[in-house]
Write a protein that binds this DNA or RNA. Structure first.
Length: 112
DNA sequence: GTTCTCACA
DNA sequence: TGTGAGAA
Protein backbone atom coordinates (compact mmCIF):
# COMPACT_ATOMS: atom_id res chain seq x y z
CA UNK A 1 0.00 0.00 0.00
CA UNK A 2 2.60 2.44 -1.08
CA UNK A 3 1.06 3.63 -4.30
CA UNK A 4 -0.23 7.07 -3.57
CA UNK A 5 -0.88 8.51 -7.00
CA UNK A 6 -1.44 12.20 -6.60
CA UNK A 7 -2.66 12.36 -10.17
CA UNK A 8 -6.28 12.56 -11.15
CA UNK A 9 -7.06 9.71 -13.55
CA UNK A 10 -9.94 11.69 -15.00
CA UNK A 11 -7.52 14.35 -16.19
CA UNK A 12 -4.76 12.04 -17.36
CA UNK A 13 -5.88 10.87 -20.79
CA UNK A 14 -2.68 8.98 -21.44
CA UNK A 15 -3.25 6.96 -18.31
CA UNK A 16 -6.85 6.40 -19.30
CA UNK A 17 -5.86 5.08 -22.70
CA UNK A 18 -3.43 2.67 -21.12
CA UNK A 19 -6.13 1.23 -18.90
CA UNK A 20 -6.96 -1.69 -21.17
CA UNK A 21 -7.27 -4.87 -19.17
CA UNK A 22 -8.53 -8.42 -19.44
CA UNK A 23 -11.84 -9.70 -18.19
CA UNK A 24 -10.23 -11.06 -15.03
CA UNK A 25 -8.98 -7.64 -14.02
CA UNK A 26 -12.32 -6.04 -14.81
CA UNK A 27 -14.08 -8.65 -12.74
CA UNK A 28 -11.64 -8.08 -9.95
CA UNK A 29 -12.07 -4.31 -9.94
CA UNK A 30 -15.80 -4.10 -10.51
CA UNK A 31 -16.81 -7.14 -8.51
CA UNK A 32 -18.80 -8.38 -11.49
CA UNK A 33 -18.10 -12.06 -12.17
CA UNK A 34 -16.41 -12.83 -15.47
CA UNK A 35 -19.31 -14.95 -16.55
CA UNK A 36 -21.71 -12.10 -15.95
CA UNK A 37 -19.60 -9.80 -18.08
CA UNK A 38 -19.54 -12.33 -20.92
CA UNK A 39 -23.26 -12.77 -20.50
CA UNK A 40 -23.86 -9.04 -20.87
CA UNK A 41 -21.64 -8.95 -23.89
CA UNK A 42 -23.52 -11.88 -25.37
CA UNK A 43 -26.71 -9.88 -24.95
CA UNK A 44 -25.17 -6.94 -26.77
CA UNK A 45 -25.34 -4.79 -23.64
CA UNK A 46 -21.60 -4.11 -23.63
CA UNK A 47 -18.84 -4.44 -26.16
CA UNK A 48 -15.24 -5.51 -25.69
CA UNK A 49 -12.31 -5.29 -28.03
CA UNK A 50 -10.58 -8.42 -29.21
CA UNK A 51 -6.87 -7.86 -29.10
CA UNK A 52 -5.14 -8.84 -32.31
CA UNK A 53 -5.03 -12.55 -32.98
CA UNK A 54 -5.97 -13.68 -29.50
CA UNK A 55 -9.59 -14.25 -28.64
CA UNK A 56 -9.34 -12.78 -25.19
CA UNK A 57 -11.49 -9.77 -24.50
CA UNK A 58 -9.89 -6.45 -23.61
CA UNK A 59 -11.72 -3.65 -21.90
CA UNK A 60 -10.93 0.07 -21.99
CA UNK A 61 -12.00 2.53 -19.33
CA UNK A 62 -15.23 3.32 -21.13
CA UNK A 63 -16.29 -0.31 -21.10
CA UNK A 64 -15.33 -0.61 -17.45
CA UNK A 65 -17.29 2.53 -16.67
CA UNK A 66 -20.24 1.13 -18.52
CA UNK A 67 -20.08 -2.13 -16.57
CA UNK A 68 -19.90 -0.23 -13.29
CA UNK A 69 -22.83 2.01 -14.21
CA UNK A 70 -25.00 -0.87 -15.37
CA UNK A 71 -24.18 -2.87 -12.27
CA UNK A 72 -25.24 0.03 -10.07
CA UNK A 73 -28.52 0.49 -11.90
CA UNK A 74 -29.29 -3.21 -11.69
CA UNK A 75 -28.67 -3.11 -7.96
CA UNK A 76 -31.20 -0.30 -7.82
CA UNK A 77 -33.80 -2.58 -9.29
CA UNK A 78 -33.58 -1.88 -13.01
CA UNK A 79 -33.67 -4.71 -15.49
CA UNK A 80 -30.57 -5.39 -17.53
CA UNK A 81 -32.06 -3.92 -20.68
CA UNK A 82 -33.37 -0.83 -18.88
CA UNK A 83 -30.03 -0.25 -17.19
CA UNK A 84 -28.17 -0.66 -20.46
CA UNK A 85 -30.51 1.76 -22.19
CA UNK A 86 -30.10 4.38 -19.49
CA UNK A 87 -26.32 4.09 -19.50
CA UNK A 88 -26.24 4.36 -23.26
CA UNK A 89 -28.40 7.49 -23.18
CA UNK A 90 -26.37 9.08 -20.39
CA UNK A 91 -23.07 8.53 -22.14
CA UNK A 92 -24.46 9.88 -25.40
CA UNK A 93 -25.78 12.99 -23.70
CA UNK A 94 -22.48 13.61 -21.98
CA UNK A 95 -20.67 13.18 -25.25
CA UNK A 96 -23.04 15.56 -27.01
CA UNK A 97 -22.53 18.23 -24.36
CA UNK A 98 -18.78 18.01 -24.69
CA UNK A 99 -19.00 18.18 -28.47
CA UNK A 100 -21.05 21.35 -28.15
CA UNK A 101 -18.50 22.78 -25.75
CA UNK A 102 -15.75 21.95 -28.22
CA UNK A 103 -17.65 23.66 -31.02
CA UNK A 104 -18.28 26.70 -28.88
CA UNK A 105 -14.62 26.92 -28.05
CA UNK A 106 -13.52 26.69 -31.67
CA UNK A 107 -16.18 29.20 -32.75
CA UNK A 108 -14.95 31.74 -30.26
CA UNK A 109 -11.48 31.10 -31.50
CA UNK A 110 -12.46 31.69 -35.15
CA UNK A 111 -14.41 34.76 -34.19
CA UNK A 112 -11.29 36.51 -33.04
C1' DG B 1 -5.20 -17.36 -17.08
C1' DT B 2 -8.94 -17.42 -21.12
C1' DT B 3 -12.62 -19.36 -24.39
C1' DC B 4 -17.14 -21.85 -25.47
C1' DT B 5 -21.45 -24.67 -24.73
C1' DC B 6 -25.18 -27.12 -22.34
C1' DA B 7 -27.97 -27.20 -18.71
C1' DC B 8 -30.39 -25.42 -14.63
C1' DA B 9 -32.65 -22.09 -11.37
C1' DT C 1 -31.08 -12.87 -15.30
C1' DG C 2 -27.42 -15.26 -13.97
C1' DT C 3 -24.59 -19.50 -12.63
C1' DG C 4 -22.11 -24.32 -12.65
C1' DA C 5 -19.45 -27.49 -14.76
C1' DG C 6 -16.85 -29.64 -18.31
C1' DA C 7 -13.64 -29.28 -22.05
C1' DA C 8 -10.31 -27.11 -24.97
Amino acid sequence: MSDNHEIDPLLDFDLLKKLVVGIGEVSDITGVPTRKIRYWEEKGIIESEKEGEGTTRRYNYINIKKILLIQELIEEGFTLDAAAKKVEARMKNINDVFLKLANTASNEKNNE
